[in-house]
Design a binder for these strands. Structure first.
Lengths: 217, 217
DNA sequence: CGCGCTTTTGAGAAACGTCAAGCTCAGTGG
DNA sequence: CCACTGAGCTTGACGTTTCTCAAAAGCGCG
């Protein structure tokens, strides 16, 4: 990775919040290339990260090479907030990324700041709810439903009806607990039913919201 | 549920810790019968619970009736620590239970107490790590491996080589994202290979630790 | 245009679920 | 003391879903 530029650089946008403030005063802006590792599985948890640009994925690889993707993080998202002494999932840049990084100790030094605490707790809350939903999805949903849920969650983030997938099929598969072929087949199936349309393999549009919602539930 | 007896009852053991102290001063000891609901899915998060006796399971039921068990909690465990405004999983007594209950506000009032905070954070840490492991298991392990992992985790809790299952096959299945038949078949299979032995359907002994560990990894 | 990389498609195999029946065992009442 | 019962567990046969392996098709890029 390379250090992009120091934080007092004017390019660093500064929304007025305690969290942004902590990132601005104590943070460093880093740039990571596509597929570059941000931190490794089993690294010590020392830093707190915020996505500025690009998308980050966390993943865990078992001894025999199976991979489970934990989450995808988008601009504005905090990540690296694992509660234990070391990371159980590694983090990698999905595409070229800029990431703000602060030492946890610096954050702790700024403690007592209620707004900052709230932002971190809120990130932890989101993280835990995401994990809970992920468990239910992996435990009880079919491949078709998993893919539908995934498209739904991406589309909701975008807001509008066209959305871009930041990740390839393999990352989707490893997030959904499926194989790349099954993901592809389910996408083809949903297209065949005119529930979604893929103008290109990374871009889609939802055509039948209610049908997709019913599947994603 | 029924109120068992007030907390100043001499039967209430009192390990000298801030957490126990908070439970003792502000808590109420409740008794729940087998399969009784402790809190419902979508209830507001207001209380903090600690298992005194018995085993508790948390579970989530989807609109169409599929059930995912989130976790099992044993004596000494804290539960009900969900970060959002309401419970995304309900909690039920697996067998006859005694549970200590405190209002979250009472806990918060006792804040500043470092040891208490630590105990709650520790419980949250465990919860999150459990969720992470659960995701990897459901996303990437086979039925055989899931069952092996499950037996392993139960056995580790017990310490010694004989262990009791507090839950029936259906609860195991709903925790592991499998059907009751598949769980049963995997148990039969592991017995056939002399990796475990079941003197009764709720009691087992691990015969080949290394084999089971290899599967559980 | 050719090359690597990703995605899609196909055919067959394996894993897991479904449905139905049989078994075990503790509890119960004759 | 023993048959009866009901709940939970196991087993079997079969169906469906998902995976595996292999090949073809699309797509960006030099």
């Amino acid at each position: 990775m390379t250090l992009a530029y120091p934080l007092d650089d004017p390019r660093a946008a500064r929304p007025a919040s305690a969290l942004s403030d902590a990132f601005d005063r104590h943070g460093v802006r880093m740039a990571y290339a596509r597929n570059e590792e941000i931190y490794a599985q089993d690294d010590a948890v020392e830093l707190l990260y915020r996505v500025v640009r690009g998308v980050v994925r966390t993943s865990r690889v078992t001894a025999d090479g199976r991979r489970q993707v934990g989450a995808f993080y988008y601009p504005g998202d905090l990540f690296g907030l694992e509660p234990g002494p070391d990371h159980r999932f590694g983090a990698e840049a999905l595409d070229d990324c800029e990431i703000l990084v602060v030492r946890r100790s610096a954050v702790r030094a700024a403690a007592g700041d209620a707004e900052l605490d709230r932002a971190i707790l809120e990130a932890q809350r989101l993280e835990m709810e995401r994990l809970q939903d992920h468990v239910v999805m992996l435990g009880r949903k079919s491949a078709r439903e998993r893919v539908a849920s995934f498209l739904m969650s991406i589309a909701q983030r975008g807001g509008d009806d066209h959305a871009d997938l930041a990740m390839g099929r393999q990352d989707m598969a490893d997030y959904l607990g499926l194989t790349i072929e099954t993901v592809s087949r389910m996408l083809t199936q949903l297209q065949g039913e005119a529930i979604v349309a893929f103008p290109s393999s990374r871009r889609f549009e939802i055509r039948k919201w209610t049908a997709l919602e019913a599947l994603a539930a």
